[in-house]
């Protein structure tokens, strides 16, 4: 990414929340928004500084590694489906499906029966381990759904 672009985005990332929070808190009493107001002002100044720097400062590459974002989006999407599934069919069922499906998708040995077997084994062992630790031993509640 270009350094200027990175500065510009970071500047916006400071300014937008500052304005949104200011707008949200505009009707509250002074005692309630004293501290947030200080922060909003600070973020606004820093954001403007970064924006300014992005137009006047030197360009050049930031030193970041190459990332394959298609893979990242699969992970993010799968997590979203997992969360929805948890609400619908229950924590343990959706956890084991998520673990098996996604670890198979990302595995390094191609989509073979063997690698699926590995993922299935991993998914089941991990789910059982989570169940044993959280539900049996610690008795910490897990998200509830229709099934298990």
């Amino acid at each position: 990414m270009d350094k200027r672009m990175s500065d510009r985005l970071a500047g916006l990332f400071a300014i937008v929340p500052a304005i949104v929070f200011y707008w949200q808190g505009r009707q509250l009493a002074a005692e309630s928004v004293l501290f947030p107001m200080v922060l909003e002002a600070f973020l606004l100044i820093m954001g403007l500084y970064l924006l300014g720097r992005s137009f006047t400062g030197a360009g050049g590459k930031t030193d970041d590694e190459h990332l394959t974002y298609s893979r990242a989006w699969v992970m993010i999407g799968a997590t979203a489906v997992y969360l929805i599934g948890m609400d619908l069919i229950g924590f343990y069922v959706s956890t084991s499906i998520f673990l098996i499906a996604v670890s198979w998708f990302f595995n390094d040995h191609g989509y073979t029966l063997r690698s699926f077997g590995m993922s299935a084994l991993f998914g089941v062992v991990m789910t059982v381990a989570i169940y044993a630790t959280f539900s049996l031993f610690l008795q910490v509640p897990t998200p509830e759904g229709l099934l298990f």
Binding site: L83, M86, L99, S103, F106, V140, P143
Partner: peptide
């Protein structure tokens, strides 16, 4: 453990760990 397994394992633990604090989705 290969990254593929660790990655999904961390997601599952993160979900349950976040939920455990206040029992809230």
């Amino acid at each position: 453990v290969p990254a593929a397994y660790i990655g999904v394992g961390i997601v599952a633990l993160s979900v349950i760990g976040s939920y455990a604090i206040r029992n809230s989705m």
